[in-house]
Design a protein around this nucleic acid. Sequence first.
DNA 1: TGGTAATCGAGACGGTACGTCACGTCTTTCG
DNA 2: CGAAAGACGTGACGTACCGTCTCGATTACCA
Lengths: 201, 201, 201, 201
Amino acid sequence: MSDMTSTADAPRSPGRPRSTRADEAIVDATLDLLAEGNSVESLTIEAIATRAGVGKATIYRRWPGKDALLLDALRTLKGPAPHCAGRSVRDDLVLLVGAVGQHADPRARKIMPCLVPEVNRSSAHRQAYEAIVEPRREALREVLRRAIDRGELRADIDIEVTMALLTAPMLTQRMLHWHAGDERVMPERIVDTVLDGLRVR
Amino acid sequence: MSDMTSTADAPRSPGRPRSTRADEAIVDATLDLLAEGNSVESLTIEAIATRAGVGKATIYRRWPGKDALLLDALRTLKGPAPHCAGRSVRDDLVLLVGAVGQHADPRARKIMPCLVPEVNRSSAHRQAYEAIVEPRREALREVLRRAIDRGELRADIDIEVTMALLTAPMLTQRMLHWHAGDERVMPERIVDTVLDGLRVR
Amino acid sequence: MSDMTSTADAPRSPGRPRSTRADEAIVDATLDLLAEGNSVESLTIEAIATRAGVGKATIYRRWPGKDALLLDALRTLKGPAPHCAGRSVRDDLVLLVGAVGQHADPRARKIMPCLVPEVNRSSAHRQAYEAIVEPRREALREVLRRAIDRGELRADIDIEVTMALLTAPMLTQRMLHWHAGDERVMPERIVDTVLDGLRVR
Amino acid sequence: MSDMTSTADAPRSPGRPRSTRADEAIVDATLDLLAEGNSVESLTIEAIATRAGVGKATIYRRWPGKDALLLDALRTLKGPAPHCAGRSVRDDLVLLVGAVGQHADPRARKIMPCLVPEVNRSSAHRQAYEAIVEPRREALREVLRRAIDRGELRADIDIEVTMALLTAPMLTQRMLHWHAGDERVMPERIVDTVLDGLRVR
DNA sequence: TGGTAATCGAGACGGTACGTCACGTCTTTCG
DNA sequence: CGAAAGACGTGACGTACCGTCTCGATTACCA
């Protein structure tokens, strides 16, 4: 958990080892409750403990507080960064843009917006967030660089600005507007519009 | 507040009228505390009452709960929607994009991110949020429409997608990344890149 | 209450006054639970609050902790010191000795032994205990003094030792041995034996 | 301890034998902590284990709970019942009365009062207490009986009442009033006063 | 001018959740 | 197999806020 990522070959501390069943039950209960309730505020440690069939102390032994637990719970939702076949710029971009703020677990959709304020809380939270997001950003950056090298995209574009243009609309929609039954801004439209520009030729 | 916006010519109810000093003190204390602390969770009604020099009941007499008070407090931060001179598409867009998530009050910068999860809480919150944002969106929509009519922009663009492309990067940056001392994605860059597209011609 | 004995003509502090119903309910619940359970350890503040139909904070607002509450609860059990008719030394002594460790409330019998260790905890507890006991001791002391003055008792007796002789057997029996269904050492026997002595004449 | 007093010639059970070092360390730690703190409540098994350098399970393997451990710990404090030279009634009584509630170990003085409520808890506790006290009571009873037989004391005295008269003052003083730096009620005074009675002759 | 009525501040009310600590039990590894 | 170490589920601790409820004191208005 959180505080012992590299469990490589630790010499094994004495005493009863921590239960992995508890680990999973806690994270699972957290996600369930978050998805059922609608806010971080209404998520209580006591409810998590009850739902997970676990004592409160077992939670506090692993995480210092609600924030850390939340971040850790989210981390388990994120699958691996999507793989780019590398066929065409357009296809790659559509794939990566569609993956922004996307998760395998359906509960994630309701959980993510709750994390926005958390991210702004402290640099520790921010770094945890970056660790999750950065691999995906790097994949996107790489696709853009390759396309420029191959002459498919203009050489003078600002890559950071471009990434913001591509990813922010999806992120915004899925964070602020996930409530709307279906998504109105599709990845393909975003990519095509950004690629072609608005001006008449 | 909130529940008595149209005090036009009410027949004046009997009894002592509500103190406007209290109204202001409460909203002000709320914004102060929000800007000092970093989360909605750590904002307590009791602290607001103490800071405002007001009884708790005086707050609950005006707002049904923390959420409503928060929304109202934010509303006071937002100035009027910016006026578009209507000189060129580019200038107008730069102006409006720069105004996204922008506020006069410096406290707003720290407060806004806290509101993201609130917005997703209930349709009431959502509507309140829309009421604040919609005028600005409409101004932007109008600029785009006029530009299309005048033949400055392609006629086949999807206006909603385009608005997302233009506004989301600023919004994302100011919500998720306000911590970064200075902004890295400038309105001009966004507008120019979107206008011109990425492809080589 | 513990902390405001002289409520004579206080200028009435602002805010809602404390509920006397709560005062009584708490003390009553405490005595009930103490009499039901068998130890101070098994008496919990939460159980008191529940039984009294009161929030925990309402208890902590009045008493700093379990000890203080207990002492206060006991105080309410003790009736007024018994009145001495002053007929004969023997009658007066029998009355006062019988009153040692005696209470109106039947619950007291089970509660008192629990207080012995409390009394030895700190000087504050000790003083509280003395305040309860001292009036009774003084009444006994007075009876002995008068009897000496009237020539009914020897003038060379040590009054403190004599008081210990008279009261300790009852106290011990009622503290350590209350479990024995009926008392084996009666006040009359104590008084008579002490008055007459053990030696043959 | 408690549950295996007669380890005389047991056939030696298999596996690692129990450490006698642990036995002593646990009892010693218990007495130390009891003497340092002032109540049974503040004595915790975890503290005992830590102080004794022992695992909690090692304690629970030997005693069923805190009460049993306490009683056992106290038992180790009590020396053998004092031997009566049998010179004169008065000398014997002074000796035995002075031994009431008396212990070799100075820690006992602070521990004893804590045991009063324990004694009243259950019949098991009571029996354990009686087993400690009874030998001393029997010695006193014997002295009184012999003195009556020899015609030194009146034949009509109630022996149980007399024992209460003699022992209770010391017990009370040492249980309730041990805090007073020095004792005010000396064994000699008690014995003499009880022997002679209060009345003028 | 003297009610009537809703406000004000203060703070107590019954609750719920917090994060900590100790309980007595269970589960490791080591000697 | 007993030892230590320490995690386990449980539940009480004392604190902080919740949203509601009295209090006495203040304003306004209307009669």
